[in-house]
Computed example of a mutant assay.
Amino acid sequence: MQTVKIVVTGPFSSGKTEFIRCVSEIDVVSTERKITAEAEKIKDSTTVAMDFGRITVDDDLVLYLFGTPGQKRFDFMWEILSEGMLGFIVMVDSTRPETFREARSILETFRAYAPTPYVVAANKQDCKDAWEVDDMRVALRLDSKVKFLPCVATDKESVKKVLLELLYSILAEMDAGGA
């Protein structure tokens, strides 16, 4: 049995917890706490340490999904959660361009932790005010080689597509490393 550790990261309220909850075959272990003040306008709780979910791909492969906290004050958890990861997903809220710069910074931080495959997921593509993926790619200054995928974190098929794209990249890297 092969296990693959995948980290799901991104800015506050980008959809990390929903993404993991959508596909996890176990109840997601979550360290959410009620939030107050300004952030409450967006949502009423936030991840303070991590989310953990699991999905069995087949008899030989299980994915462990670790969601990071999105708020900067909990970023000390990022490096801890990145240890041993074989890949990561950066979630970006397509409806909140004010978070794009932060998403880019988080992407660069995780690339510095480990040179593993990654994909970027443009979440909330089902919302009428969502930016187009091509426009987001420009705003995030993403190279055309970076897999940048439309996503809806509450839609199981959408989440599976993002996970599969990352898994293909991880497997390709493993094959290349073994050759």
Score class of each variant (00 low, 15 high):
residue 1 M to H: 09
residue 2 Q to R: 13
residue 6 I to P: 01
residue 6 I to Q: 04
residue 7 V to D: 05
residue 8 V to M: 14
residue 9 T to F: 12
residue 11 P to M: 01
residue 12 F to Q: 02
residue 14 S to L: 09
residue 14 S to D: 11
residue 20 I to C: 06
residue 21 R to M: 04
residue 22 C to I: 08
residue 23 V to T: 08
residue 23 V to G: 09
residue 30 S to E: 08
residue 31 T to L: 07
residue 32 E to T: 06
residue 32 E to I: 10
residue 35 I to P: 02
residue 38 E to G: 01
residue 39 A to R: 15
residue 40 E to S: 06
residue 42 I to D: 14
residue 44 D to C: 10
residue 51 D to F: 01
residue 52 F to Y: 14
residue 55 I to N: 09
residue 61 L to T: 03
residue 61 L to S: 01
residue 63 L to K: 05
residue 64 Y to V: 00
residue 65 L to F: 08
residue 68 T to N: 08
residue 70 G to F: 01
residue 74 F to G: 11
residue 75 D to K: 03
residue 76 F to T: 02
residue 80 I to R: 09
residue 80 I to M: 08
residue 83 E to K: 11
residue 83 E to P: 00
residue 84 G to M: 12
residue 84 G to W: 12
residue 86 L to K: 06
residue 86 L to P: 00
residue 87 G to D: 07
residue 93 D to N: 14
residue 95 T to N: 09
residue 95 T to Y: 10
residue 98 E to I: 03
residue 103 A to L: 04
residue 104 R to T: 03
residue 107 L to T: 10
residue 108 E to I: 04
residue 109 T to Q: 13
residue 116 T to Q: 10
residue 117 P to H: 14
residue 118 Y to C: 11
residue 118 Y to G: 12
residue 118 Y to R: 11
residue 122 A to P: 02
residue 123 N to S: 10
residue 127 C to I: 08
residue 138 V to A: 07
residue 143 D to P: 04
residue 143 D to R: 13
residue 145 K to G: 02
residue 147 K to N: 06
residue 147 K to P: 05
residue 148 F to R: 02
residue 151 C to G: 07
residue 155 D to V: 15
residue 158 S to Y: 07
residue 159 V to R: 07
residue 165 E to C: 15
residue 167 L to Y: 08
residue 168 Y to N: 03
residue 168 Y to M: 08
residue 169 S to G: 12
residue 171 L to V: 08
residue 172 A to R: 06
residue 174 M to A: 03
residue 175 D to K: 04
